[in-house]
Simulated assay, not measured.
Amino acid sequence: MGWFVQAEAPPGALFKTFRNVVVSGAAKDSDVAFYFVHWFADLAGAEPYPLDGCNKFVLKFPQHVLGQFLASFSIVQDIAVHPETRVLEEYYKSCWEKNAEGRPLPAGPGSIAQMRLVLMAQGDSKVIIDEYNKLSFVDKKVLNNEMACTGCAGQQFQCDPLTGQETAGKGPAILVYYGPALLQKPGRDNPRGALVILTEIYRKTRELFPLSAQDVGNSVTVRIDAAKDLECDSVLRPVSGQYWVVSRSSNKDAMLKSLSASELKDVDWSKNVVLSFDKAVRTPNAPKGGGEFGTASVGLASTGSTPWTGIGARVRRMSLFGGSYLPGSWSPSSREE
């Protein structure tokens, strides 16, 4: 349910198995109701000592989030009569109307991305939407397309059906596990940086799990535990000799890792790809010499000048955007707006 309330997961990963059980008749209405009650009570039981669990539930659980949990139950119970994507879209719209501070309900390209980002951030909705609007065209397109990918064959969101986009009718959809934590913790102080990191994680995960029509009904999960509690600068500008890598561990799973320069030498580049933040951290109208984060290039470009031609060549080939990503160097790429 946490995946649902905080818009963490696409419809397929979230509801497909649950809906199949309900539609098959293996679960009665009373079973579904009991599931919700059990899940709700289990929030306190997540702590090893009952009193500590109750204290956390009552004193530390944000009241507005608790309200969203309770309000979501009536929406999810429609899963027996409506497709997964429709149920989730109705929830997104309902939450937007309650939390968007008078802004009109978005429609068209980017509408699902905006509604999901507001729920993931669980904070000032105006701030997160303003920062989303400041992203480059290329980065917004990544978020728009990936966050509206459903992981359900034959289903698209009505308000953003991905018409004419490469993700339409294809999969797998990507679940960024701990995406909400990224936006709520480091993103509270640096929402722009958190959005840039989230975008790059989607982008590089897609390199490892290419779009195909046969995977339209599938989803993959990328865990970002390693970065969810760090300051954004620790990912945007890793210390010299450190690299952030999305590593594929199975046909359905990947994870974000921090690797040293020596570890990169043994990496299987068919299953790993390095995050690169070159121009992504700059505002669209930033001057050529620098941007909002004080430099035109971070990530690989800021990690020193060790001339590892072999590793650099592999990193360069793994990039979608060309340019030189040898440590200590940078050249313009098509990502610059």
Results as ranks from 00 to 15, higher is better:
residue 328 G to W: 04
residue 234 S to C: 09
residue 241 G to Q: 06
residue 16 K to C: 04
residue 20 N to W: 04
residue 274 V to D: 06
residue 11 P to I: 03
residue 39 W to Y: 15
residue 275 L to A: 03
residue 320 L to G: 13
residue 73 F to G: 10
residue 26 A to Q: 15
residue 17 T to K: 10
residue 5 V to L: 04
residue 243 Y to T: 04
residue 280 A to H: 12
residue 10 P to D: 06
residue 116 R to D: 00
residue 277 F to L: 09
residue 74 S to L: 03
residue 120 M to R: 12
residue 184 Q to A: 13
residue 199 T to Y: 02
residue 82 H to G: 00
residue 291 G to P: 01
residue 182 L to D: 06
residue 51 L to M: 12
residue 178 Y to W: 14
residue 269 W to N: 07
residue 218 N to G: 02
residue 303 T to C: 11
residue 225 D to N: 10
residue 141 K to H: 09
residue 261 A to V: 07
residue 128 I to L: 08
residue 233 D to C: 08
residue 64 H to V: 12
residue 118 V to Q: 09
residue 59 L to R: 15
residue 160 D to E: 00
residue 135 L to N: 09
residue 157 F to S: 01
residue 159 C to I: 15
residue 88 L to A: 06
residue 229 D to Y: 12
residue 19 R to Q: 14
residue 223 R to I: 11
residue 127 V to K: 14
residue 260 S to H: 06
residue 232 C to I: 05
residue 273 V to Y: 07
residue 218 N to I: 02
residue 101 E to L: 14
residue 93 K to R: 14
residue 188 R to M: 11
residue 49 Y to W: 09
residue 219 S to C: 14
residue 9 A to T: 05
residue 113 A to W: 09
residue 232 C to S: 09
residue 154 G to E: 07
residue 270 S to H: 08
residue 147 M to I: 09
residue 99 N to H: 15
residue 279 K to E: 15
residue 89 E to N: 00
residue 233 D to W: 12
residue 229 D to W: 06
residue 306 T to W: 09
residue 193 G to R: 05
residue 251 N to G: 03
residue 125 S to D: 08
residue 252 K to T: 14
residue 254 A to E: 00
residue 113 A to T: 12
residue 301 A to W: 12
residue 23 V to H: 03
residue 203 R to D: 10
residue 301 A to H: 15
residue 82 H to R: 05
residue 110 G to P: 01
residue 281 V to Q: 15
residue 290 G to K: 10
residue 107 A to I: 04
residue 304 G to Y: 06
residue 116 R to I: 00
residue 301 A to C: 14
residue 320 L to A: 11
residue 48 P to Y: 06
residue 311 I to T: 14
residue 29 D to L: 05
residue 305 S to L: 04
residue 151 G to T: 04
residue 183 L to Y: 03
residue 83 P to N: 07
residue 57 F to E: 02
residue 140 K to I: 02
residue 151 G to L: 08
residue 235 V to C: 01
residue 71 A to D: 15
residue 310 G to K: 13
residue 208 L to P: 04
